[in-house]
Amino acid sequence: MTEVLINSALQLVLLMLVAPLLSGMIKTLKARLQTRRGPGILQSYRDIFKLLRKGMVIPETASWIFSATPYMVFGTATLVGLMIPMTTTHAPFSLFGGVLAVVYLLALGRFFLALGGLDTGSSFGGLGSSREMTISAIAEPAMMLAIFTVALGANSTNLSEMAKVAVGQSWRFLAPSQMLAFAALFIVLIAETGRIPVDNPATHLELTMIHEAMVLEYSGPYLALIEWGASIKQLVLMTLLVNTFFPFGLSSDWTLQTIGVGLAFYLAKLLLLACMIVLVETTNAKLRLFRVPELLMVAFILGALALISTFLF
């Protein structure tokens, strides 16, 4: 019991600290690749800190749903973070929720975010909510198929079990099923975290924004919570990808040395995945909204192929 609490506390600290760093890193890398100077990698921390020290304006038309939303977004993202193995194969909350709970808790956060967007009565909020729910709905089956491929291989939906099985079979990621599932999940990651070519995190143009449109009316500490929650969600999804497909550096025991090695490997893997995202973001243009289903359909078929090849290849 105390062990679970200590582990949770450690992982919580890690989540809260690494998530903004990762967002900042992606921003900086992207700027460098586009030969801009860009903000420093610590910018996301500064943003959150600044927003926490700002006054808040709440729309006159909003109800208590508007105020509940930031907490739900932040709470679900951090709770999900405790269910995912980060530096060792053991996640503190893996007993209390596996990969299905992860997907559904993130959906709970999104449910409230969409309600918060509609609560103000602003058309921007409605537009964002409508698009967000649409895209996430068609991303869901692809995500599940890819996850099932891994879960069926590990005979478990428990993320720690999945990581342990992955550690046991090194070079497994060379198997076609793993590669296809990774590709499918990568596309889903792009869609779920609102990145180009699905959404543009850096725009405030009404025709193109999705996530930004939903949170347009939020300000001050509420916005800080939502942004922080969003970056934690991004970290969680990226962790899911790197640790289930490339389990290097994960060990099952919990000593200072393994944590150190695990952390170093973990950060390196995240950096590599961030580079991939940055490459995709820089080399692609944003898709029209009605082209996004095509992309997600590709992800779905990739997931299905991954599944077929698990028991044929």
Partner: peptide, 9 residues
Amino acid sequence: FGRKRGPVW
């Protein structure tokens, strides 16, 4: 830092 109600954008 305060909290106030304001019109929607």
